[in-house]
Amino acid sequence: EWIDNPDYATAPARSKNRDALNAEINQRTVAKTSEQWVAELNAAGVPCGPIYAIDEMFEDPQVKHLGMAQQVASDDGRDITLVAQPFTLSRTPSRMAARPPEFGEQTEEILSEFGFTDGEIADLRLHRVV
């Protein structure tokens, strides 16, 4: 019945009425689990998959099978699990060469590159801007 609804008939109309359309979609989608929707949509030819939290993503059987998680050592010796490259090249295998920076680890370096002086950076820290 949504196809015949003028509020949803065109892309501009759907954009204008997005909140109402989202409410209707939400009302319908709560009737089944994510697993049921993914199975039905895939069966209908709509490629889709679940939306995961990070910990759920690493537990997905396909992620495990494809080796999409890689371990990288941190400076303090603990291993960090990261998402690997989304594709595999036979002649150029990828690997995680370095860990991502810790929160705030490169703040001074980046601010310095933008021309902030040591004193200005210290003042920003003092005022809890960074």
Rank of each mutant, 00 (worst) to 15 (best):
residue 53 A to Y: 11
residue 77 G to K: 12
residue 68 M to L: 15
residue 87 F to W: 08
residue 115 G to S: 07
residue 82 L to T: 04
residue 94 S to L: 03
residue 118 D to F: 01
residue 45 G to C: 12
residue 129 V to T: 11
residue 50 P to G: 13
residue 93 P to F: 05
residue 17 N to L: 00
residue 86 P to I: 06
residue 122 A to C: 09
residue 38 V to W: 01
residue 51 I to K: 03
residue 24 E to T: 06
residue 81 T to L: 15
residue 32 K to P: 00
residue 115 G to W: 03
residue 118 D to I: 04
residue 110 I to L: 10
residue 3 I to R: 15
residue 120 E to Y: 01
residue 73 A to I: 14
residue 52 Y to W: 10
residue 5 N to T: 07
residue 121 I to V: 03
residue 48 C to W: 07
residue 109 E to R: 10
residue 120 E to G: 03
residue 27 Q to M: 06
residue 120 E to K: 02
residue 63 V to M: 08
residue 78 R to H: 15
residue 9 A to D: 12
residue 43 A to C: 11
residue 105 E to C: 09
residue 95 R to S: 15
residue 21 L to D: 01
residue 105 E to I: 05
residue 46 V to Q: 09
residue 47 P to M: 09
residue 68 M to I: 10
residue 28 R to E: 11
residue 1 E to Y: 13
residue 89 L to P: 02
residue 55 D to Q: 13
residue 37 W to S: 01
residue 15 S to L: 10
residue 99 R to P: 02
residue 57 M to N: 11
residue 17 N to G: 02
residue 66 L to P: 03
residue 33 T to H: 04
residue 60 D to Q: 05
residue 81 T to Q: 14
residue 20 A to I: 07
residue 31 A to G: 12
residue 128 R to M: 06
residue 23 A to H: 01
residue 59 E to M: 12
residue 35 E to D: 15
residue 16 K to L: 10
residue 48 C to V: 09
residue 78 R to C: 12
residue 108 E to D: 15
residue 113 E to P: 00
residue 113 E to I: 07
residue 1 E to C: 10
residue 34 S to C: 07
residue 4 D to E: 15
residue 126 L to G: 06
residue 8 Y to H: 06
residue 58 F to W: 13
residue 39 A to C: 06
residue 111 L to N: 00
residue 41 L to R: 02
residue 15 S to M: 10
residue 129 V to G: 01
residue 75 D to Y: 09
residue 100 P to H: 11
residue 117 T to K: 00
residue 88 T to V: 08
residue 100 P to A: 15
residue 123 D to R: 01
residue 108 E to T: 11
